[in-house]
């Protein structure tokens, strides 16, 4: 057995202190990344992947129709106008579909926004692939300006048969003060 001190009490104490430090590190280097990995892998919380999906060649399943609903919400204190182009679309699994969200900054100051998506039912999150999404990046907008923010998605052919409606909800956050750039790192 490794002895770190001639005093057996101090030896035990040093080893236990190392355990305590390891547990502190465990929170940062294991629990946080593990949570993200698990949420991505299992689609928990309706979290969808935040990197673009690379389309695999697939047959469009014209025998099925899935209803896609869009919801746009502003986070607390976010003054932007934010709404989907259409609130509802009907698509076939496997078919790439384009739509956009409309955003306008009614203030006089340039601002930066970040949209966070969530899919409901959460079981569908793993089958809803975004090939292009404004939510992958922050959206800067000058004062009084407006823009159309594109979204392209494919619903997986393997989507469970009992899911006929998928709701995609975006919450728009004001990240102007969060020092643009650093936040996307996490």
């Amino acid at each position: 057995m490794l002895r770190l001190s001639r005093n057996p009490g101090a030896d035990t104490a040093i080893k236990l202190a190392a355990v305590a430090c390891a547990m502190f590190a465990f929170v940062f280097v294991v629990m946080v990344p593990l949570y993200d990995v698990l949420c991505d892998a299992l689609g928990i919380n309706g979290k969808t992947s935040d990197i673009a999906y690379t389309a695999v060649p697939a047959v469009v399943d014209t025998s099925r129709e899935v209803k896609i609903q869009f919801i746009a919400t502003n986070n607390d204190g976010m003054p932007w106008g934010f709404r989907p182009q259409v609130t509802q679309l009907t698509v076939h699994p496997g078919a790439a579909t384009d739509t956009f969200f409309y955003a306008e900054n009614p203030t006089n100051l340039p601002m930066i926004a970040q949209a966070i998506p969530s899919v409901s039912p959460s079981r569908a999150a793993g089958y809803f692939h975004k090939t292009e999404c404004f939510c992958f990046n922050q959206q800067p907008l000058d004062g009084m300006a407006s823009t159309e923010m594109p979204l392209q998605f494919v619903v997986d052919q393997d989507l469970p048969k009992d899911i006929r409606t998928i709701t995609l909800s975006y919450t728009l956050f004001d990240v102007t003060t969060m020092a643009g750039g650093t936040i996307a790192a996490r």
Binding site: V27, M31, V32, Y35, D36, C39, N45, K47, D50, N75, Q114, I116, T171, F173, D174, V175, M178, A179, T182, I183, A184, R186
Partner: peptide, 22 residues
Amino acid sequence: GTSFFSAAGGGDPVLFQHIFWF
């Protein structure tokens, strides 16, 4: 300026509950 628990920066408030109750 980190965003462990802030959705705007890619974090998640639910993560807090997991760590707290762990």
